[in-house]
Design a protein around this nucleic acid. Structure first.
Length: 282
DNA sequence: TATAATGTTAGACT
DNA sequence: AAGTCTAACATTAT
């Protein structure tokens, strides 16, 4: 569910609320959260009990800072460990201050709770794709370019030079560009006037410049709006975002393009729904 | 009942 | 070998 702007929203809110708090307890309601980490995390050998031990080591540590890498949320602990969360399709985080009456056990789809000195952090995830990992050390900083840090046209041109994949798939490839998902890929390409099916290697410098500008504008506004709530996205405090009011193409099949009046088309690219205006996007 | 949903990735192709 | 495509993951909503 969450893309870069939603994860960035959560990180900013987590920072205001979590910094300096001590972890008092961790309850994992969904055993999948542990097993997935063991299967995919680390390289190679699986030592039984390692995950449980690492989780236990977090108790008593304090949150130093909350950072983001693409769509990953990282709680940097003062002891040097890092908790890394990925919300995937349907994950949400909810923070309840200790003086709020709501009990976590009555929150539907609550898969994990982290009890802190002044409140409780809940991971809510109906589809159970979210992941929770504990790293012994600080995680290496960002690998791919992060559009919020600036995604220069010449860099895009360089990465795309050998890629024949559709430009939309290119923008959504987390190994190449960090944080862009389905909603914002569609919106960015509409703003840039580029057909999502175009092979990435065929875009000109001028076109990449448009993509770069559009990415920054679209994502910054979405962060300012605290994300896009088209179905179930909520921020850390349960509030909806407002960026859905700015969507030009996503989920607007057969509706009129606000720029030219033509009909928005829906196609499938890389297995994902893709909306665009065939008149405005070439 | 069949399809699609804001994500990622292992494995199969090319 | 590297790039690309597909199915799978689990669950709900339309």
């Amino acid at each position: 569910m969450p893309e870069l702007p939603e994860v960035e929203t959560l990180c900013r809110q987590l920072n205001t609320v979590l910094q300096g708090q001590e972890i008092l307890r961790i309850d994992i309601m969904d055993p999948r959260l542990g097993s997935v980490e063991r299967k995919r995390g680390g390289s190679g050998k699986v030592i039984p009990g390692t995950f449980t031990r690492k989780v236990a080591e977090l108790i008593g540590q304090r949150v130093a800072a909350v950072t983001r890498r693409g769509k990953y949320i990282q709680l940097q602990m003062n002891g040097g460990m890092t908790v890394e969360l990925h919300l995937r399709m349907s994950g949400r985080l909810l923070y309840l201050a200790a003086d709020k009456p709501l009990s976590p056990s009555i929150v539907p789809y609550c898969r994990l709770t982290i009890g802190l000195s002044a409140g409780i952090l809940l991971l809510i995830d109906p589809r159970r794709f979210a992941t929770f990992a504990v790293q012994p050390d600080k995680i290496a900083p960002v690998l791919p370019d992060d559009p919020l840090e600036g995604l220069p046209a010449r860099r895009l041109l360089e990465i795309a030079r050998t890629r024949r994949m559709p430009v939309k798939s290119f923008l959504m490839d987390q190994r190449l560009v960090a944080g862009i998902g389905n909603i914002y890929a569609c919106e960015i390409l509409f703003a840039a006037g580029i057909d999502p099916r175009r092979p990435a290697c065929n875009l000109t410098t001028v076109e990449w410049r448009k993509v770069s500008k559009a990415a920054k504008a679209i994502l910054c506004r979405a962060v300012a709006c605290r994300g896009t709530t088209v179905s179930d996205w909520r921020d850390l405090f349960g509030c909806i975002g407002t960026n859905q009011n700015h969507l030009e193409v996503y989920s607007r099949q057969a509706e009129p393009c606000r720029r030219c009046g033509g009909s928005i088309q829906r196609i499938t690219l890389g297995g994902r729904g893709t909306w665009f205006c065939p008149i405005c996007q070439k």
